[in-house]
Structures are given as C-alpha cells and as structure tokens.
C-alpha cells in the first residue's frame, strides 16, 4: 500500500517535467513581449526605427520618461482621477452590491423573486447609448463631473449574483440567533454577514477596482475638462489620435505634422506608467481571487 503510493508519487513527479517545461515556455511567451515593451520604453526613437524592438535596448535612453514627467501635471492629474474613482467606486460599489445581495439571499425576504427578476431582466438587452447619454447629461447633470465616472455602472449585476450565491450558504440559523440576541438587520449585515463573506467581497472588490482602473469610455463621453480625464482615457486618446491621423493622412488638407506624433518609445513608456500600480496590487489579491471565485461557484 505504502509502496504503491510512493511509486505513484514518483510517477507524478516524472510526468510533471514536461508540464513544467510547458509552463516555463508559456510563461516566457507571456513575459517576453512585456520585457520588449519595457525595453522599448527605454530606447531612443531613432534606435527603434533603425533596429526595431529588442529584448534589451541597444542603448539605454530615458528621453521618453523625461518627456512624460517634464510636464507631470497631466499624468499626475489623470492618476489622481483614476485612483479617486477606483477607491470611491470600489468602496461604494462593493457596499451597495453586498446590500442588494444580502436582501436577495435572505429567505425571509418576501419580494425576493420579483426583485431578482427586476434586476436580472435588464441585463438581457441594452437601452442603447443615446438613452443613457440623455439621462446622464440632461436629467442627472453628470456632464464634466467625476460622479459620471463612478455612478453609472456602480452596481454590476453579475457581481451581485456572485455575492448572493455566497451569502446563501450562510446558515439562516446564524442570523436567527443574532436576532434573538437583539441584533438589528443592519447589525446582522455589517457584523455577521459581511465579515463572513470576505473572500467573495475581495473578489468583487478586485473586479470592480480593475474595472474602474480601466475606465475610459464614460470619461470620453462625459468629461469635458482635460484635468478630469482618467489615465486610461488619456492613453486611449493619445493612441487613437495617432491612428486617426495616420489613416487620414491623405485627407487632412495640411498634412500631418509628424513631429507632433509621439514616438514609439513614448507610447510604451506611457503604457508602463499606467499599468505599473495594478501589477503591484495583483499578487496580493490573487489568493482571494481564486478562492472567492471557486467558493462562490460551489452551489452555482
């Protein structure tokens, strides 16, 4: 018995060698393009044009970063906005989503199925862009306000259902016991349900934060002030402007001033600057991430 288990173990180790190699290669395939981007951001524009992208820069050159931080106001402002909407959007988003989910998870809630249908039904189709644009600009007056980046999409129905499924696994007797001890519904929610739901909350928080960090579309639609645009929007605008100019070179009557188009190295540097922080946070969330996803999915 013992022996056979050992041989089995050895077998496992043996078969895992090709697996290791596969994942090493796979990791490299993912890593090399990223290193190339980093290296490109540290190269000079002329070197990039002459020698193309390389894993190590031909010559170290900090022009791109110097240019970026020479006028740091733009980058810092955009960072400020993105961090603000990420923090505010995540805190309120998770809180509200948990509240909705808590109601839907309680078996004692009378209108549960009606409410579930009410929030689920609109996810099947969309009212279109114009409708939400009119609501947001003309009725809610969100134009040029940071609220336009936080409020629409604060509650994600998919996430609500994920939290609900998780909360449903908490025994109803636990809440009854709390009630007998004199706890109000709020106390049950904040002091019992939420602390027990940490894994799924972390998952949702991470998804929301990622979503808000990548926010650019609402920023494009509703923000008029260049000081209030998000980091991703700034990047997106820079890249897309280049594309529009390149595509229409023949049409634009005065031709395009090439000197105005940022070089490849600058674009890569912007990329690094914008994804940097997210990359630092990701590993800390990751353990919750996998746990929350699987735990929430057990009972579908």
């Amino acid at each position: 018995m013992k022996k056979s288990r050992e041989t089995q173990k050895r077998k496992q180790e043996k078969t895992s060698l090709p697996v290791h190699i596969f994942f090493l290669l796979f990791g490299l395939i993912c890593l090399i393009p990223f290193i190339t981007v980093v290296s490109a951001s540290f190269s000079s524009e002329l070197d990039l044009a002459r020698y193309g992208f390389r894993v190590l820069p031909k010559k170290w050159d900090l022009t791109a970063y110097k240019y970026l931080f020479e006028n740091p106001k733009m980058v810092l402002n955009a960072y400020g906005v993105t961090i603000f909407i990420t923090v505010v959007g995540t805190v309120f988003g998770v809180l509200f989503m948990a509240m909705v989910a808590f109601c839907l998870a309680r078996s004692s809630m009378k209108l549960k199925s009606v409410l579930t249908f009410y929030i689920y039904f609109p996810t099947l189709f969309s009212g279109g862009l114009t409708a939400s644009y009119i609501i947001n600009t003309q009725y809610l007056n969100l134009t040029n306000s940071l609220a336009a980046l936080v409020a629409p999409g604060l509650i994600n129905i998919f996430n609500v259902f994920m939290i609900r499924t998780f909360l449903k696994q908490q025994p109803a007797s636990l809440f009854e016991a709390a009630k007998i001890d004199g706890a109000s519904e709020y106390a049950i929610f904040f002091r019992i349900a939420l602390p027990l739901a940490k894994p799924v909350l972390a998952t949702v928080a991470f998804l929301t934060a990622l979503d808000k960090w990548n926010e650019w579309y609402n920023s494009m639609l509703y923000i008029r002030d260049n000081d209030k645009i998000t980091l991703q929007h700034m990047l997106q605008r820079m890249m897309n402007n280049i594309n529009v100019l390149m595509e229409n070179m023949d049409n634009i009557p005065m031709g395009v001033n090439l000197a105005d188009i940022p070089g490849e190295n600058l674009r890569m540097a912007m990329l690094i600057v914008s994804i940097g922080p997210m990359m630092c946070f990701f590993p800390f969330f990751q353990k919750y991430f996998t746990k929350g996803m699987t735990v929430g999915a057990i009972k579908g």
């Binding site: 644009y133 009119i134 600009t137 003309q138 639609l221 008029r224 997106q236 605008r237 897309n240 594309n243």
Partner: peptide
C-alpha cells in the same frame, strides 16, 4: 469653442446631435 480630441470627435458630436444637446 470646444476642442474635442480627433479620435472622439465623431462619437461625441453624433451623440450631441441625437440627444438634442
């Protein structure tokens, strides 16, 4: 006068027209 980025001009103006801005 409002300057809108090249890449966003068409989307923004079309929305402004269709929403009656």
């Amino acid at each position: 006068l409002e300057w809108i980025a090249e890449s966003e001009y068409e989307t923004r103006v079309k929305l402004a027209v269709s929403s009656g801005e």
